[in-house]
Each structure stands twice: as structure tokens, then as C-alpha cells.
Simulated scan of single mutants.
Amino acid sequence: MKKIRLKAMAKINLGLDVVRKREDGYHEVRMIMQTIRMYDQIELEPTEAPGIRVSTNLNYLPTNEDNLVYKAAKLLMDEFDVKKGLNIGLRKFIPVAAGMAGGSSDAAAVMVGVNRLFHLNLSQKELMERGVKIGADVPYCILRGTALAEGIGEKLTHLPPAPAGYVLIAKPGIHVSTKFVYTNLKANELESHPDIDGQIQAIRSGDLKKVAELCGNVLETVTIPAYPVIEEIKDVMKKGGALNACMSGSGPTVFGLFDDREKAKAVYENLYGGELAKQVYLTTFFNNRKSGR
């Protein structure tokens, strides 16, 4: 096999609850994860010369062991004593540091690709078990689709595909530190929690309006006071006809769920030409688990 290309898809959190802060410092979560049709492109090419080499279209991204794609490849290649080298070409389109698991998805795609390229014969479950060593979101990014994530995000339960709709993505021109958000989250003092179980039932029922109604993210209690533009974007989406709008992950990306493409497109054009958001995309859910990367 000479070269393979893969899609590393982004995710949003339809619901994100933090149950408690554990004694080990980690936060226990319950999240509904959803893959969307937005992706980075990964190209893997084996080489006779040993070593891992990373290239990317963004000059501010690391190309050494600080990049998750490098760590993901090294993890498997070291374990299975792969003698050949690997060139990794990474073309980023998912917004960086945006709460959309772009880095984790890139790592997941590389693990899938290395497994395929060097005939390691690992199952999806075995890849996911190794992926958590790279990051808590990596197992989900290997799985993809609609899933409940628990623990620190590594305990995953398949859910039926979320009901079809339109997803408007808007990222303001700011970067939010995940560490900042979780450090400042008063997990044991939260006054309200999203109804994750109710949202799961709405997904099982195929009720997009109810899924949207129950969207919630407790991390907004930290991120929005620090970055009010997030609330402003949410308001624009809701006033434009979104069933609901919510922040994804630790932010700052906002997504709006629509059942009407024309309304979604109108809000897209409004935000695209405005000052609130620097990156705006209109897309849909991805749920075909049987298709290739």
C-alpha cells in the first residue's frame, strides 16, 4: 500500500453535563456526542527511512511530538515495532481550539490509518482502548456518529442516529483554554443540569425539536461570562429561526440546530458577513458508521 487518505471529522456536544469533580482532579461527565460533516484531511505514506514526519497547511501548528497525530502514530508504531517510517500530511479545516475535537479526530484518523497501512489487525474496540492514552475524546472520534460519553469521556454507548437537521457552526475570533474552563467550573455548585436522559429519548424518538430544546452545556457558565460574544452568536441564531443554539465543548464555537435549510442559510449569510464570527459553516449530522473514512 503506497498512500492512504482519510477524513478526520469534527464533533459537537448536543448535551454536556459535568456530574462532579473527582478526587483525582478529573471531571466526570455525561455528554451526547455527535459527528458533523466537517473534516480535516489526513494523508499517510509509508517510507523506507524510519521516523515520523508531519507536515501541515497551518504554520503555527507543531510538526513534532507535540502534535497529536505524531503521538498517535508513534503509539502504535512503537507498540508493534514498525520498522518503516511514516509521512503524515495534515490539512486543517476544522477550527482550531474550538471545542470540536479537531486534534482528537486527527489523532483518531491517524490511528485508523496506521492500523490499516501496516496491517496491525486491531479491532475498533482495540483502537479505542489505545486512543484514550492520547486524549479522552479520541475513542469517540474513532467510533463517530451519535453516542453517550461518560466517565472522563472515554466510556461510550452507541445511540441511534440523531434525527436529520441542519447545523450552523460559528466560531468567534477567540481561543478558549479548556484548562481555564474546567479550572473555573464550580462543578459541585451547578444549579441546573441538562436533561441528558430526556435528550437520549428524543434521539430514540427521532424528534429533532425535542433534541434541540434539551440542548445544554454547563461549561457555558464559565465561558460565556468570560466571552460574551458566545451569547451574542446564540441570540442571532435563535432570532433567525434556530430550534436552539448552544456552545460546543469548552467553546468558543456555537452551533445552531435548524429544521429549515433556508432559515439556516439566511443566518449563515448574516453571520458570515458580520463581525461576531470569524469562521462560519453550514452542514449536517454524520451518522453512517459503515462508510469509510
Rank of each mutant, 00 (worst) to 15 (best):
E65M: 09
L58C: 08
I196S: 05
L61F: 14
E23Q: 12
S205V: 01
Q124S: 14
A49F: 03
Q199E: 12
P95S: 01
K263D: 08
S192L: 02
A101R: 03
I36L: 12
H193C: 00
R30G: 02
N188S: 15
E262S: 15
T146V: 09
E65L: 06
E213S: 14
Q41A: 06
A264Q: 00
K186P: 00
V69F: 05
L14P: 08
E275T: 04
N115T: 06
I200D: 06
I200W: 11
H175D: 02
D235Q: 15
S104V: 09
G256K: 06
A226Q: 10
F180Y: 10
V280D: 08
F258H: 05
E48L: 07
L148F: 13
G102W: 12
P50S: 10
T146E: 14
S248Y: 13
L148M: 14
K239G: 02
R22V: 08
G241Y: 08
N115C: 06
G292A: 07
A226F: 08
E150N: 03
I174T: 05
P225T: 02
Q34H: 05
Y60W: 13
L185Q: 01
D78K: 15
K209P: 06
A212S: 13
I12R: 15
A245H: 01
M77F: 12
P225N: 04
V19R: 11
M1P: 09
H175I: 04
T47Q: 14
G15Q: 03
L120W: 13
G273C: 14
M128C: 03
T157N: 07
A187E: 07
V29G: 03
T253E: 09
A136L: 09
E262A: 15
C215F: 07
V96G: 01
D78A: 10
K234P: 03
V114D: 03
G165T: 09
E232V: 00
S205A: 15
I36P: 03
N217H: 05
